[in-house]
Design a protein around this nucleic acid. Structure first.
Lengths: 205, 205
DNA sequence: TGTACATCAGTGAACGCGCGTTCACTGATGTAC
DNA sequence: TGTACATCAGTGAACGCGCGTTCACTGATGTAC
């Protein structure tokens, strides 16, 4: 990561790392291109050899995040198979796990205000992660009698919303919001109740 | 709202209104004290007659938001009584309704990064809103057999998280996130499934 | 192995900009007599 | 009703600052011969 002479070696990556660190520490507002350059040990102007500007740098960080995110979702899904239920629960948990392990990426993706529509590439990789959740939901919904089966996209959205809410409100340094429960437990139990509501888990336990 | 001569009349309020508008239009990042002053038709320096600075102005906007929010929650709760179930569902819906009707306030409260701990006053008014939700949850939880009754704070947190998630992901101009379902329906059905999972609604319907 | 040269990733100085904040001031308002 | 005066909400000029971005440049690297 330290530069070794006039040429850096891998400045592009180093700038993304710096961006992630700053965005995590100071929030998306606090992030400046100049400081990222400073952290990477380089002149602000050098950034323009690798990115179009400030926005583009954040977008690159987010892109990397979506990639990792999609991978984690897929892995969690595969790990749960062949049980559709386990696979589904796994993806829900993976959401929170991602936010915990990659807070910088998470902020760049969901709180920095960069649009998913920015690039078709960004859009594509972002859809991959959500796609896994929807696939898991579709698979799982086959276990519900057709006449009382909600659209899989819908309950994917429910789980996504709950996961996102738990992360935003309870897992991050959010506005003084403290819950007496660890976010992991909160999400776990929330998903549990929800799936029970769909009749996918027996009512006791 | 137009100033009428040298003295404005109600600059404090006008500045909050300007702050809300800007924060809604451009996001919390885009908000500047100077522009708020401009919108209110006044010199930036004039702001300091009413607020300590930029942060303080946003905090005031958030404070006003929390006040309105708490009122809406209480009203929704009261309207649902004496049915504990209806009262609870009402507060969930009120969350989304608030975000829709007062987007500027919503941003100031939940996305601007100002801490709830900033003032004991702010903390107090912010707790009032959440308190209603917790009260509703506690009331409702009496209808669950004690041995399978989760802590009311916990399921208040679940509903809060889901509401917040729906708002952030689907109700606001969020990162290209589009759902085929209107947020209202999404939240309504999500809460429905959840309550069914708690055994508070009969499994059919 | 050595030299000439093209490539390109970095520099560093400069720019204009709008920001938040301060200060001594001044114009309008309201009150005492 | 009129005048003197205190109060205070506004002005406007100035400040230092760090930002994002541009530009002509230069130093390091790699390749052709």
């Amino acid at each position: 990561m330290a530069k070794q002479g006039y040429h850096h070696g891998n400045l592009r990556e180093a700038l993304i790392v710096a961006c992630l660190r700053l965005v995590e520490e100071k929030g998306p507002t606090g992030f400046t291109l100049s400081e990222a350059a400073r952290v990477a040990g380089v002149t602000p102007a050098a950034v323009y050899r690798h990115f179009e500007g400030r926005e583009d740098l954040i977008a690159a960080a987010a892109h990397q995040g979506y990639e990792i995110f999609a991978d984690m979702m897929e892995e969690a899904y595969a790990k749960g198979l062949p049980s559709a239920l386990k696979a589904f629960e796994g993806t829900g948990r993976a959401y929170l796990a991602f936010a915990r392990r990659f807070p910088g990426h998470y902020v760049a993706m969901f709180e920095s205000g960069i649009s998913i529509q920015r690039t078709s590439e960004l859009n594509k990789v972002a859809s991959r992660g959500l796609g896994v959740l929807e696939k898991a939901a579709a698979e799982l919904s086959k276990h519900i009698p057709p006449e009382k089966r909600p659209p899989p996209q819908m309950f994917a959205a429910h789980i996504w919303a709950m996961s996102h809410g738990v992360v935003e409100l309870f897992a991050r340094g959010s506005p003084g919001t403290k819950s007496p429960f660890p976010p992991e437990d909160l999400l776990e139990s929330g998903i549990g109740v929800y799936l029970r509501g769909l009749g996918l888990i027996p009512p006791d336990s």
